[in-house]
Amino acid sequence: MMYISEFQTKDVVNVSDGKKLGNIDDFDINVTNGKIQAIIINSHGKMLGFFGKDEEFVIPWRNIVKIGEDVILVRMNRQIEGLDE
């Protein structure tokens, strides 16, 4: 069993390009069956919280490749998913 707080400390990395996407901020949970449908990552583009913009990435659970001790590996095509930097 793993607690939500354990998920939030892991870095999320895209295996398609090796880039760190951020950390999990939230989950999309199906209230009918209680299963996680997606993870939500808030990529902080702000410097000291003032400049830039926050981007929110919603990554479907099916795109998670591996949950490791320190990292969560996901497979995302950045152009298709609208995750261009």
Rank of each mutant, 00 (worst) to 15 (best):
S43D: 13
F27P: 04
Q79D: 11
G45M: 02
N14R: 02
D11W: 01
K19P: 02
M1A: 13
T32C: 05
P60H: 07
S5P: 07
D54Y: 12
F57S: 01
N14W: 05
S5L: 14
G45Y: 03
G22C: 07
N33T: 11
I59S: 03
G18S: 08
D26T: 09
D26F: 03
I80H: 00
I40F: 02
R78W: 07
D11Y: 02
N23T: 07
G82C: 06
R62Y: 13
W61A: 07
K46D: 11
I39V: 09
S5A: 12
M2K: 04
D17F: 05
G45E: 08
H44T: 15
D84M: 14
L21Q: 02
N63A: 06
I72V: 11
N42E: 15
N77Y: 06
S16D: 12
L48C: 11
N42C: 07
S43Q: 14
K46H: 10
E81L: 12
L83Y: 10
I67C: 05
G22H: 05
G82F: 02
D28P: 00
I29A: 02
D17R: 04
V15R: 04
D26A: 12
I29R: 06
D17I: 06
K53R: 13
Q8N: 07
I64A: 00
I40H: 03
I40Q: 04
L73G: 04
S5K: 15
R75V: 02
D54T: 13
I24W: 03
E56M: 09
I4C: 07
E81V: 15
G82N: 03
Q8Y: 11
I64V: 14
I24R: 00
K46S: 08
Q37K: 10
Q37W: 05
D17G: 07
G49K: 04
I64F: 03
V71F: 06
T9V: 07
K10P: 06
I72W: 02
K66E: 13
D54H: 08
D11R: 08
Q79V: 15
M1P: 12
Q37P: 02
K35Q: 13
G52W: 03
I59C: 05
L21R: 07
I4H: 04
M1N: 10
K19S: 10
D70C: 04
D25Y: 06
F50P: 00
K20D: 04
S5F: 15
R62N: 12
I36Y: 03
I72S: 01
V65T: 11
K35S: 12
V74D: 02
T9K: 15
I4W: 11
M1H: 10
V12Q: 02
D54C: 05
I40L: 06
K10C: 09
E69T: 11
H44F: 10
N63K: 13
V15S: 12
G49W: 02
V71K: 14
D84K: 15
L48S: 09
L21M: 14
V31M: 10
F7R: 00
Q79H: 09
D28V: 15
D84A: 10
